[in-house]
Structure formats: structure tokens, C-alpha cells
Nucleic acid binder design. Sequence first.
DNA 1: ACCATACCTGACTAAAACGGTCAAGTTTAG
DNA 2: CTAAACTTGACCGTTTTAGTCAGGTATGGT
Lengths: 141, 141
Amino acid sequence: MKLTSKGRYAVMALVDLARFDSINPVSLRDISLRQSISLDFLEQIFSKLKKNNIVKSIRGINGGYILNKDPNDIKLTNIFHAVDEKVKTVQCKKDSKKGCNGKATKCITHDLWDELEVHINTFFENKSLQDLVKNNRDSRV
Amino acid sequence: MKLTSKGRYAVMALVDLARFDSINPVSLRDISLRQSISLDFLEQIFSKLKKNNIVKSIRGINGGYILNKDPNDIKLTNIFHAVDEKVKTVQCKKDSKKGCNGKATKCITHDLWDELEVHINTFFENKSLQDLVKNNRDSRV
DNA sequence: ACCATACCTGACTAAAACGGTCAAGTTTAG
DNA sequence: CTAAACTTGACCGTTTTAGTCAGGTATGGT
């Protein structure tokens, strides 16, 4: 069980963005340099963040990205959802008539994985971008 | 972020085992049939469980596996550890002098991922095999 | 008007992880 | 002595990951 880089980078980039976007749009190039993330990869990520209305883009020279919402209203769960990072513990399809192992019934540990998913998602739902910015406000990165 | 089959199967197999091993050793073949898990794959998994003293093997005809501890003392965290299922959120090596991105400092979201790991591991530490068996005692699978 | 800057898009890919399979044993009960 | 069951390790096709590459398009400063 692990988190993918796409999800991690998305959060890192947004924390970076949140710290600077009140002044000017922030270019991906700057984020790339500050956070050591490939520029091309960032573009992929921000394309998705934009589609999900988490950021807005401003084109042209001196352009960049800015947040589209208050940092308090951007939860980790929104970010992960935007970049297709999902918590997946069970294999079985919810809409299918079949159970977890191709059997008619759900598997012996099905409820456990459901419970685990809820546990993790709760964490993501309760954590906002603002929380993360606050923790980094004083530490220079 | 997802759980691997190895971890899921290990838990499923042990729940199955815990329900039957008070009578006889349980053969992997039986578990394979009941839980629809490949026999070869189960052998890989039980080899690791045995190395970690979670199960004992009894060879020969009518042999099989039995639990090596009280189901109350087998936590999910023990099972996952045994089969190398780990919660991994940050890329950076703890012993390394380098930070998360090859920089000297730890990355801007480092504390977040640590917190998440703790959150998930807490869930695993508080859940025992006995808890899972209890939940399945009455439902026929 | 020009052109550098920055966003935008989609195709492509090397490497790793996943989810097993296959083969060749060894041990022990009956 | 032999069949059932455990044991070990090599192998392998597929999928996912973590990007790269190669082209765009839009815009604003000069």
C-alpha cells in the first residue's frame, strides 16, 4: 500500500502555490524549481487540477496559476480525487452482481476493507490546504 | 494508494484458518478452495507467515497449518509486516542525509505523510484476527 | 507586430511492481 | 513405499508508474 507520486506532487505543488499566489500568478517553472518536480509532470498534474476547478490559469507572459477557492475549502480528498489518486482496498466491483472472488457472496474480509477505506478517507476529508500552509509558514523551504 | 493482493489474501487466509484450526491442521488446498485463492500463491504467502511465527506447519498426510498464537494477539499490523505489505507515503529514506527530493531539507509536506502513516498504522495495530473471526462467526461464507 | 514566456495536449516509454505459474524438491503418515 | 502436504526458488506476462518528448496555442510587454 503506497501513495503515488502524482498525489504527493499535487499536494506539494498546491502548498507551494498557496504560499505565493496572493501576490502574483505562480508559474509552474517556479514550482518546478522550488520543489524539484519535473515541469512536464507538473503540467499533467495542473491540467487535472484545473479541470476540477481547484486552480485557475492565467496565460501569457507573467502568467501562471492561482487557487480557485479558499485554501480552507480545498481538502486533501479534493486534490486526490482530481489527480485520480484513490484509496482502493477491495477488488470487487460495487455494481457487479459478483462478490470479491467471483463468488456470489462478498468475501470474508470485505467489511474490514470497507472500514479501512472509511478510516483513510476521513483523514483526507478533514485536512485542508490551509492546514498544511499554516504548518509551513514559518519554516523556510 | 491501494492494498496489494498479497496482503488481502494473507488476511483472508488467516481468518479462514482461525475458524478451523482448533479441530485439525488446515491444508492450503482447503483454504484455496474455500477462498478462491491460487494454491501456489498461498504457498508463497504462508512461507512468509511461518518465518514470522504467525503460523506453524505440520507436514505429511493430514498435515497443514495452525496458528502459532492466540488470535487476539495477531494484529493486522503483524500480518502485513510478515508479507511485506507496508504503508509507504514518503519516498525519502529515513537514514539518508538527504531530504525527500534530494534537497538538504525535508519536503514541504513531509510531516503530513508521516501523520498519515501513523493514522493508518493505528488502524492496523488495533485490529486483531479475533475481531475479524468474530464478525464472520455467524455468517456462512 | 513580434516573440519570449507560459500554458496546453497527447503520444510514448523504460523500469518497477503485481499477480501469479512452474518445476523440483523434502517430509511424514498410513 | 507412496501419496499428501509442505518448501523453495526461479520465472514471466501484464499493468502501472513516473515520467519524457514533441509538438502545439494564447498573451502581454516592448
